[in-house]
Design a binder for these strands. Sequence first.
DNA 1: TCTCCCAGCGTTAACGTTAACGTCGATCCC
DNA 2: GGGATCGACGTTAACGTTAACGCTGGGAGA
Lengths: 339, 339
Amino acid sequence: MPRGRSTDTIGINDVARAAGVSLMTVSRSIRGVDGVSDATRQRIVRLAREMGYFPNSAARALAVTNSTLIGISLPTLLNDVFADVLSGMRRTLDRAGYSSVMDTSDYDPAREREWAERTLAWRPAALILTGTTHDPALRARLLRERLPVLEIWDVTDDPIDICVGIDHLDAGLTLARHVAALGYRRPAWVGAPPGLDLRADQRFRGLVRAFRDVGAREVRRVSVTGGNSFVAGAGGFGQLDLRDRPDVVFFLTDNMAFGGMMAAQKAGLSVPDDIGIVGFNGLDLTTVLPRPITTIRTPRRQIGVTGAKTLLARLNGLHPDAVTRLPCELMPGATVRMR
Amino acid sequence: MPRGRSTDTIGINDVARAAGVSLMTVSRSIRGVDGVSDATRQRIVRLAREMGYFPNSAARALAVTNSTLIGISLPTLLNDVFADVLSGMRRTLDRAGYSSVMDTSDYDPAREREWAERTLAWRPAALILTGTTHDPALRARLLRERLPVLEIWDVTDDPIDICVGIDHLDAGLTLARHVAALGYRRPAWVGAPPGLDLRADQRFRGLVRAFRDVGAREVRRVSVTGGNSFVAGAGGFGQLDLRDRPDVVFFLTDNMAFGGMMAAQKAGLSVPDDIGIVGFNGLDLTTVLPRPITTIRTPRRQIGVTGAKTLLARLNGLHPDAVTRLPCELMPGATVRMR
DNA sequence: TCTCCCAGCGTTAACGTTAACGTCGATCCC
DNA sequence: GGGATCGACGTTAACGTTAACGCTGGGAGA
């Protein structure tokens, strides 16, 4: 007796036997490549469907030594930012026949590396990473393997392969200069702890520079953890030293800014008369408020779409621009005003 | 000359040759299964790392005729609801060694089916779907293949395999009874068009029943498309016929309710004096408002965690409960009041 | 009419890994 | 001391698919 295993699933072989042709004819028919007459192809495709044949991507990946999987790593989906980016990407990749192997890293490079190792074992067609700073070993490996890699959200002159994003330092600078020009001189910042969200750190650097340029006092910094939620914003505001009399508070993102604004009002402060509030991202929320939050709109969906298209071009053997820097749009809002 | 292909990647074979052992010894060493002495194992693992060996999951999947991939289909990530569910699941599955192949269907069963077909080609260990209504052909196939399938968010007595969620009809009923008991009799509902979000339709049915039970007039229904965002809520409120004098408006979700409340106030209506506002989900936002939105908290993260754990039990050959119904918590808020 | 080409199909050998079974000493026990 | 047992490894044959190349018959061109 033969000792092999045996599966009840039917493969290309079974279809071939039933159709009375070789398995290559079946393979060619199903893939739609040349070398089969139309009559034969139609007969085989119909038969395959009738027999309940389903292709096995693992076998295909093994045979062609790559796959139609694309790995996507995002820091979090708990704010709208990366959900927007993702929805922009997914559709484009989907239509091109790629599946996404996803994870969220919670801003932890080690988790990103672990996920990447697991994902690379599937020999993906490409990897999409958030930001331009990664575990050194991972970066080295990706460079060595010459895998198509798209880095999103941030830009750098020295990407692993290609990158599409915004200039966070410049975004912080633009936003802060606008606010500084209105006369604010006692700024504070509520965001992630230093070193966690590196893009936020860049924006903070922009703030610092803009206020230093106008001779303002240093930017007070409050760090909150636990997501960019409304509650974190309110909590962050609560941690501010109000005796220090800040005249404007910048938040990591609009949702936090709204939370902070609610906390300010609860504390008896009027916005913007007593204190200015500034967000980041230009989320939906800001537009429905009677007093829209001052913020800067980031092209999140566009980053996703452009990123995916650029990556597809790369996968098709073209040589797209390695660095795409997309513009942000200042939204003056009404939570700061001329002092 | 041999005509085969040749890849430069190094496999288990190369390591075996370099170590002077058979490839099975390498395989066993790397997988950590019995049958190798500790000394040999350590020598081989070290050598493999030095040589830059990386496992090939596609080959493994082919050999064992299944994989460590889990497919996850969600309707959208553009509101916090499914992002919460997902983050609850991912960590648990991640720690058990599974990777996620994800997609969002935008509530379209056809897209869910297409994604599922593509994903099933990878012979995933399990599938996670949202809701309990799917393309009939897909459902039939999943039943036939006896694949572990977890359905989340909604519950049914007849799941494909196992399901973890809440009773949406009951949630709608509970919420509406609370509101009806306060004296409201002219309800309206702003949500998705009928037939799109089937869970929302269930909740709506709960509303209808609760208000019919107290002899109120029928629930006016306004449908909006384009995400559950703040803007959609504001737009939906704008579509209400105010001459019809609704006394309370239920929204698909809290964020929409907030958008609607802003629109109401912009229209000169005071909440809750002139009109009541009711949300759904108990999102973060509602807790930071000076006037918290009346809503019902859904155990989103818990659904993710419990779902993942139940699925893992199933994958480990246990027989967990097929149906897990989790409780919701009414949050009275202050956007309705006794009339 | 003969050659050449090509459409249409088949044969063989990978792709990298694991399951199943075989082998061979060393230890153990009566 | 001889058979049973077991730990540590090896051999072989899958898993399902595709790349590379081989074969064949019929029609076009000379």
